[in-house]
Design a protein around this nucleic acid. Structure first.
Lengths: 343, 343
DNA sequence: TTGAAAGCGCTAACAC
DNA sequence: GTGTTAGCGCTTTCAA
């Protein structure tokens, strides 16, 4: 393995000069620099990063912890992280937890052992006290989640208001019997989306009925199963707000199996705008999070910490957008509505 | 930061002994070992991995290069890799290339700079000569792809025979006008699947007609567009074999838009068995790769290289399975067929 | 069974 | 502008 000393020897300079050529080329006389560079090329010298990292005590690696790599929401955020990271010379590596807390704790060890300069968590499985104390010692950002009351830098969306908007859209379309399939209610995002649903109903003087709220677990199957329950109610709801797209699609499947049509008989709205939502039949009306932006913002927050800059504002909440497609039956009407407004 | 020296001092031993307790505990007297361990605990000592890695010139990290993290095929393989890696004390980190060669080359640098002990490539974008020379210098395994004629350790499936099987299934169902939507033909897997399609037709004395083969790019949209072309042919094909599930779903969409029914009017078969295939309406008949097994096998091959063991066999080709669902119209019939065979 | 000590390859403070 | 040199924290050989 060719090392810096070899380059130095052949170029008739000291190792310090070689190091300078690599990191502060402007401090080296042009002739020397060219000489060194040509020798580096000639010997095909690759700096030993392990040595460098050890010496400087930094890796230029950002660890992103994802609960699942199959989810397009996460990949959208990751794109934003990667974009911002590479602009600053950082490389992003992904640690997959498969939704298991122990893997999350395992990946945290990488950070503690300095295998990464910082970490972005795309999940909130760990105990919040652990997250807090981790955050006090290491650069850390939470994305998609944020732990109330905890001053951990985080980037998230307002699940409450964006869900409210989605449900209000259904109300504006004339629906009065609107059901909700929630996510697992131990998660903050599920609670938030549920809250938004209730707010929309209450603000429009509609009753929040227990029977019209069922807890799912974010899977297609659970959407299907909970929809089956709604179909069994005597006065079947005319619209469904599902806490994510997968469940919305599962609900659609159940409706179809009853020989009914979405959106004609039952309107359905999801959340997340996963890649498949637009390809589903019918295309799912849903709430899109600003994924790229969230990733970018998270990375910026992380960089501030790594660079030891003071963080003026550490909690960011970004805006979502309602994407009206076919499953809610409001596409044409929405257009008319917009035109009315704009005229 | 508490370091080994601190532990040594407090435990009244040398740093060497502390190091031994960590790596070869059996070589240390029990009393000493216990003492050291308690001090480690007391001081909450975490070894500096950067120093360790530098010294031992190894990271215990496996880098998996994925073209896209959104794809359930890749995540399936990764699960297998992770399983096998963790059994041997290795950690898996993912590098996302977003299907860009330059990112692939970029990640290779991590390997060259010893940021990872080995690498598994889940894509074949790089120049095959580069892959070859990389493989000569570093532990490397190709999964899902394999480069013909090149002795790079690889794990793949037989795209030809499994595609042949899929098309033969359609033939057995009575179809004679079977079209094929290929992947980008510069990729080995696309060529293989195309080849399997042709073999099936020829072996059954069916004509391979140029008009019935269109090149897609593995996206939903391309499946849709190519299907539109088939619909425009005077004698519309009665069955379609798409080189992946996304294109198969796109094709379904096109058929539906013509007011036709899948599978009644046109049967469609995909490839990959992505997570969504079973949820699509109709559920897609497809070819499933043994993803977990592929990942596991790849990791085993990589470990052999890392440990410097001789590799007896370096190219593995695993079996696929045809999953008959609704989109081919062969579900019931297949059952009858099986029963006939089994009786 | 334990300790002393020599580096691993690089960076950066300091001297010239 | 460039060279000398002292480590970074750990592992491992050698000697005791």
């Amino acid at each position: 393995m060719v090392k810096m000393r070899d380059v130095a020897k052949l170029a008739n300079v000291s190792v310090a000069t070689v190091s300078r050529v690599l990191h502060n080329p402007e401090t080296v006389k042009e002739a020397t620099r060219k000489k060194v560079l040509s020798v580096i090329d000639e010997l095909n010298y690759k700096p030993n990063m392990l040595a460098r990292q050890f010496r400087r005590n930094e890796t230029n690696i950002i660890l992103v912890v994802v609960p699942s790599i199959m989810n397009t929401v996460f990949s959208g955020i990751i794109e934003g992280i990667e974009y911002e990271a590479s602009r600053h010379g950082y490389r992003v590596l992904l640690g997959n937890t498969n939704r298991k807390v122990e893997n999350e704790y395992d990946l945290v060890e990488l950070l503690k052992k300095r295998q990464a300069d910082g970490m972005i968590l795309l999940s909130e499985r760990m105990d919040s006290n652990d997250i807090k104390s981790l955050s006090e010692e290491y650069p850390l950002v939470l994305a998609t989640a944020y732990i109330e009351g905890l001053k951990v830098p985080s980037v998230s969306i307002d699940n409450v208001s964006s869900s409210r908007e989605a449900v209000e859209h259904l109300i504006r379309l004339g629906h009065k019997e609107i059901a909700h399939i929630t996510g697992p209610l131990q998660f903050g995002i599920s609670k938030g989306r549920y809250k938004g649903y209730k707010q929309a109903l209450m603000q429009n003087n509609l009753e929040v009925r227990n029977m019209l709220v069922q807890e799912g677990d974010f899977t297609f199957e659970s959407g299907y199963n909970q929809m089956l329950k709604f179909m069994a109610i005597e006065k079947t709801p005319t619209a469904i707000f599902a806490a994510n797209d997968e469940m919305a699609m599962g609900a659609v499947k159940a409706v179809k199996e009853f020989g009914l049509n979405v959106p004609r008989d039952i309107a359905i709205v999801g959340f997340d705008n996963i890649a498949f939502s637009s390809k589903f039949d019918p295309a799912i009306t849903t709430v899109a999070q600003p994924l790229f932006e969230m990733g970018q913002k998270s990375m910026k927050l992380l960089l501030q910490q790594i660079q030891g800059k003071p963080i003026l504002k550490s909690q960011y909440i970004l805006d979502c957008e309602l994407i009206v497609r076919d499953s809610c039956g409001g596409k044409g009407k929405e257009k008319v509505l917009n035109e009315n407004i704009s005229t």
